Structures are given as structure tokens and as C-alpha cells.
Computed example of a mutant assay.
Amino acid sequence: RSIVLFGNDNKRYSTQPYYGCYDPLSYPLFFPRGEIGWHPEIPKKGVSLNEMLQSRRSGRQSLGNSYNENNIDMYIKVESSRLDYIKKHQEQIRADLYQGVVDSLQAGENRADEVGKRTIVPSSFIGGRRDRRRRYLDAMALVQKYGKPNIFLTMTCNPNWDEIISELEPGQTPRDRPDLIVRVFRAKLEDLKIQLFKRHIFGKVATYVYVVEFQKRGLPHAHFLLIMEGRYKLTCPEQYDCLISAELPDKSNQELDNRWVVPYNPYLLRRYNCHINVEVCSSIKAVKYLFKYIYKGHDRASVSIDEVDSDRNIDEIKQYRDSRWVTPPEALWRIY
């Protein structure tokens, strides 16, 4: 998107989002002196992100939405600059390697004249289709070597964690501070990895994969798949009971079934005080579903996307941009 300015002579001036003057025009409350905002040549050293964000925060709830919108804008500029580079350097990134029959079939094409007409997003772009597929195939290779996953673990951020609530300014809610949400969640996530892979609370892990996602309401959560070493693989109900609790209440006035039960580990639940689901992968049939589930990618805003543009060419960059969905916590997670 861009801002259109009209001078005294009614001449139109278009300001692109990656111009440094875009931010003070779009967010005057954050740039009261007209300071230059984000631009592609912004230095990587000598600029403190924390100081920059702190200067744009306000204790007043009325500015919360503007702060969140600004955070999203900042990350979209970063991501867009990467996509612009990819679009302008198709030859350098060896686009010809992708302009083949296999990619055409994957895209659902059935016209021979369309083969090779493609603007691609390479696997080096994090979050792109090829990146997710590469990670999925790498994960499946681990299954070939180490066997099926034994434990499926999901950890979701709790916006009411004491570490978040204690840092809020008067009038603020956790929703107003996505920077706190993602930083506290990452700290808890790193501690969880220590518990799993260094303290071996479930036993020694042979290999694992995990991915961090962001819900539509913005809260981050992580999915783990653990493949245990031989002697620590779960093979019987007695081993399940040592790690996982999933009991129905003894007394209840309502009928309850397994839809009301979330399998959990008592130690992890008490330690992290959040929704943390722990399940045993008992069948090899679940392998492909589980790996595809954790590598399904970000939420998309579009249900159907046209495969070709007006020139009958396939532009993966445009398809990615048209369907991209970003929440304030994800924007700050990527920036940090």
C-alpha cells in the first residue's frame, strides 16, 4: 500500500511503504518530529530495537491498536524487501531449476504452453511453500532412520503469565503488548527445550522437530515431535501412565467423554502454567499426518488463488503476498 500526497499545486506525489518518509506520515503519534522511519538501507548496527519500540509505546489503551498496526507494518516491509529482491534476481537464484514439468504438475497445470512461465519463491525464503516442503522431507528422512515419533507435544502461550502481567503499564492489557508475549513465550520455550533435551524428563531423545505457529487471535504456540532412543521408546500402557495423565473426574453432574479430556504431563503443566498437550504417537499411520500438520505453514486469508496472471504467467511471489496473514506477535517474533 502507499500514501498519496497532494501539494499546493494539486500535484500528486506517491509515497511507497519502503520510503523513510512513509512512517511519519502514517504514524504521526510515533514520529512527532517527522523522524525518518524504516527504509531498506537502515543500519544493522548502532540501532537498538528495544529503544525504538519503547519510544513508540504508550500506556494509554487508545494507542494499542496503532502500536500493533505499526509492528505489522515494520515486519511486512522487511518481508516485502526480501520478496522484492527475489523477484528482481530470478536469474541469479537459478529460477530455471524450478521451471520444469514437476513444478508444473504440482501447480495443477495441464497446459504444455504454460511450462516454464513462473516467478518462483526459493526454498531459502522462510515460510514459503518450498521451504515447508523441504523441512517436511527432512523430517520424514528422520523417521526413516530413527523410526516413528513417540511423543507429540503442543505448548500454547498463556497471556496471563505473571512475567507478562507484571510488566504492563497502567491501562494496558496483554493484547497491547505483543512484544512481551513473544519474548516471554520464547523464554519459556527455551526452558522447555532444556527440560526435554538436557534434563531428559521423558527419557533420552534421539531426534526431534518442532515449529512455532501463531493463532488467528495472535498467541504463539509450538508443536514438538519427539523420537526417543531405543530403551526410552513408549511401548506399553504402564509407560504411558508414567508420563501422561488423562483422567476423567470421579464425580460429575454431566456426561463427559474423551472430547473433554486433554492429555497432559503434570510436571510440565505445573511448571509452565499454560495449555500444554502431551500425546503418545501409537501408530505409524499418524506419521505423515503429524509431520504435514506441523509444517502446514501460516494461516491464509484467501480460500482460492488464481494460478496465472493476466499474462498467463505463474507468479508465486504474488500468490504468497495475496494470501499472507500476519498478527502483531508474529511480526515482532520475526523482527526479534
Score class of each variant (00 low, 15 high):
2 S>A: 13
3 I>N: 00
4 V>A: 08
13 Y>S: 09
18 Y>R: 06
24 P>C: 06
25 L>Y: 01
25 L>Q: 05
27 Y>C: 09
29 L>I: 08
31 F>D: 07
32 P>V: 03
36 I>W: 10
40 P>S: 14
48 S>E: 09
49 L>R: 07
54 Q>G: 02
54 Q>N: 13
60 R>H: 00
64 G>M: 07
64 G>P: 01
66 S>E: 14
66 S>M: 03
68 N>Q: 11
73 D>Y: 10
77 K>G: 11
82 R>A: 12
96 D>N: 04
98 Y>P: 02
101 V>I: 13
103 D>L: 14
105 L>M: 13
107 A>V: 01
115 V>M: 09
118 R>G: 05
119 T>C: 08
123 S>D: 12
124 S>C: 04
131 D>R: 01
132 R>L: 13
137 L>Q: 09
154 T>N: 06
159 P>T: 06
172 Q>R: 10
184 V>S: 06
187 A>L: 12
188 K>M: 09
213 E>L: 11
220 P>G: 08
227 I>T: 00
229 E>T: 03
231 R>K: 12
239 Q>F: 06
244 I>S: 03
245 S>L: 07
245 S>C: 04
249 P>L: 04
266 P>E: 15
278 V>M: 12
295 Y>N: 15
302 S>F: 13
305 I>D: 08
306 D>W: 01
315 D>E: 03
315 D>F: 02
322 D>G: 13
327 T>I: 02
333 W>T: 01
334 R>W: 07
